[in-house]
């Protein structure tokens, strides 16, 4: 089995990098490297051997302007060509702030191509406040991203996670089944707090048109062992990551 090379990409204010690194590096056949944008600038060739880039959660550059925006601009300005090349062989996951960054940079859902104008937005929660809570999720993830469980139980922790876009774009996303992760209530309507932020179509995560990029608001890295789960029972973050990594072994690397 080939080694999967994971690159964790950070910048000032990214703050879930340590636990994300921990979660991924506990799997055999995975090597994890961590670089910030300044370091990557000097080591762009790293991308050639990387299979998976992860942009973790946090508040990159304070989320000033709006969530993920400054990181997105740096990405566009300094790495546009390299990222587009990278996506020919590699994939990207953005978790929480990482999702916001991917959306702001026009990498998700990229209906009009990578780095086009931003098409969707993660807006302030309907509750108008930051909330840390555990949510039930329904999955609709294509096999190219692994064989996944039908449901996951994971924590969200954000102030801007409300998936929002215009009618045309949401129709397109649904038509193409890019809405791969949805908030869910097994017993009734998906109202607050089941949908913790007011996301359109209960969207918690999407993939891009070409299925190379995955952005999600929940934090699998925080649900890595059952003692960390609020019910002390599930460890769905572990399962999620494991299933994702398995999809790489099936891929020609």
């Amino acid at each position: 089995m080939n080694k999967i090379h994971v690159l964790i990409l950070t910048a000032p204010g990214i703050n879930c990098d340590e636990e994300t690194l921990f979660a991924f590096s506990t799997f055999r056949h995975v090597s994890v490297d961590k670089l910030n944008l300044n370091q990557l600038k000097k080591r762009k060739s790293t991308l050639k051997i990387t299979n998976l880039i992860i942009i973790p959660g946090g508040f990159s550059y304070g989320d000033y302007i709006y969530a993920g925006k400054i990181f997105a601009t740096h990405l566009k300005k300094d790495f546009k060509k390299e990222i587009i090349d990278f996506l020919n062989h590699g994939r990207i996951i953005g978790i929480c702030n990482g999702f916001q960054i991917l959306v702001s940079s026009g990498l998700l859902p990229a209906l009009n191509g990578y780095f086009s104008e931003q098409e969707v937005s993660l807006e302030q929660n309907n509750s108008k406040r930051f909330e840390d809570r555990w949510v039930k999720l329904k999955t609709n993830i294509p096999l190219s991203w692994g064989k996944h469980d039908k449901e996951y139980y994971l924590p969200v922790a954000h102030a801007e996670g409300k998936f929002y876009t215009n009618q045309k774009t949401i129709t397109e996303i649904l038509k193409r089944r890019l809405n791969v992760l949805s908030y869910f209530n097994p017993e009734g309507p998906v109202s607050y707090p089941f949908n913790p932020n007011g996301s359109l179509e209960n969207i918690a995560g999407i993939i891009d048109k070409n299925h190379r990029i995955f952005g999600l608001m929940p934090h699998p890295e925080r649900a890595f062992r059952k003692e960390l789960s609020i019910d002390r029972n599930s460890f769905d973050g572990y399962k999620f990551i494991k299933n994702i990594l398995e999809s790489f072994n099936k891929e020609d690397m």
Binding site: F130, E131, D132, H219
Partner: peptide
């Protein structure tokens, strides 16, 4: 209040 604080970042809070 507790939910407005990120009380789980760093994945240590048991």
């Amino acid at each position: 209040i507790v939910r407005e604080y990120d009380h789980e970042v760093q994945a240590r809070t048991v």
